[in-house]
Design a protein around this nucleic acid. Structure first.
Lengths: 139, 139
DNA sequence: TATAATTTTGAAAATGAATTTCAATTTCAT
DNA sequence: ATGAAATTGAAATTCATTTTCAAAATTATA
C-alpha cells in the first residue's frame, strides 16, 4: 500500500533510493506508534543522522504517509479561560484564521468514550484543520 | 471573577503587584482571543519585555486563568497514517502514555459541525488529557 | 519616612528542537 | 565507467522559550 504511494512520490520528485532513507522508512512503518525523532534515532542504532531522519519524515508527511502530530503550530497561543464553556477550533490552513465553535454532541461523545476507557478526563483539545469559507473560493 | 482568583494566587505565592504585569494581564483579558507572545508584545507597544510577558502568561496559566494552546507537547510526534481509520488520543498527564481510540459519534459530530460552519475539513486532531486507569489509582 | 527584605524587570545568554548549509559520498541513467 | 543530480552528516543557524543576573520597584516594618 504505502510502497506504491511512496514509489509514485519518488518518481514525481525524482528522488533517489538511498539505503539510509529506506531504513528510516522501514523502521517507521514497522514500529507501531507515535515516534519522535530521538526515538527513531535510537531504533536506528544512531546509524542515521537526525537530519536525515527529519528529512525522511518530512517526505513521508508530504505524501500523506505520516501524520505529524504537531503540525502547523509554531508558537504558542494563549486564550483567556472561559469558565462556562470550553470551545474547540477550526483552523484555516490557508489564512490561519481561527474559528471557535461549540458542539454539545462532541463533548457528550467525549465523556462517553472516556468513561468507556476508564480514563479520567481533565481537559481536551480539538482542532479541525481545513479551509474557511473565504479561502475555499480562492483555492 | 478573575480578579479574585488572581488576588488569591498572588497572596498565596507572595507576589507583588507590579505595573507592568498588571498591564499585561489587563491587555490579555481585554482582547478577545488567541494570542501569542509577539501579538501581546505589540499590543503593549513594546513597553513590556517578552520575558515579562512570558512570565505573566505562565502565572495566568498556573492559576487556570489562561489556557495554553500548545501545552504539554515538547517535540513532534509522528505516526504512520492509517488509511482506513483516523484515531484520536488519550494522553495521560502523569505517565505520558498515549492511548488511541476511535469513536464514530465524534467523527460524525465533527462532520456535521464543519458543514454547519461551511468549513472544508481536511484533518483534525483530538487529544483528551487526563489520567489513565493505572495512574488514577496512584494519584 | 527611611530602611531593609523580597520580588520584578529586561537585556543578554542559554536552551533545545528543527532546519539549513556545504563538502564529501552515493545513486543511477547513459 | 562516467557524470549529473540527489543524499548524507556534522556543524552552523534559526527561532521560540527559558534562565540568569544586576538594577529597579514594591512592600513590610521600624
Amino acid at each position: 500500500m504505502w510502497e506504491k504511494i511512496l514509489a509514485k512520490y519518488f518518481n514525481e520528485k525524482g528522488l533517489k533510493k538511498s539505503a539510509k532513507r529506506k531504513k528510516v522508512i522501514e523502521i517507521f512503518f514497522k514500529a507501531d506508534k507515535h515516534f519522535n525523532v530521538d526515538e527513531l534515532y535510537e531504533k536506528l542504532e544512531r546509524k542515521v543522522s537526525r537530519s536525515t531522519i527529519y528529512r525522511a519524515l518530512k517526505l513521508l508527511t508530504e505524501c500523506g504517509l505520516a501524520i505529524e502530530q504537531k503540525f502547523e503550530e509554531k508558537n504558542r497561543r494563549y486564550e483567556p479561560a472561559h469558565f462556562s464553556h470550553h470551545h474547540d477550533h477550526f483552523i484555516c490552513l490557508k489564512c490561519g484564521k481561527i474559528i471557535e465553535f461549540n458542539e454539545k454532541n462532541i463533548e457528550d461523545a467525549q465523556n462517553k468514550i472516556a468513561k468507556k476507557y476508564n480514563f479520567k478526563m481533565v481537559s481536551h483539545k480539538l482542532e479541525i484543520y481545513g479551509y474557511c469559507e473565504k479561502c475555499q473560493k480562492s483555492l
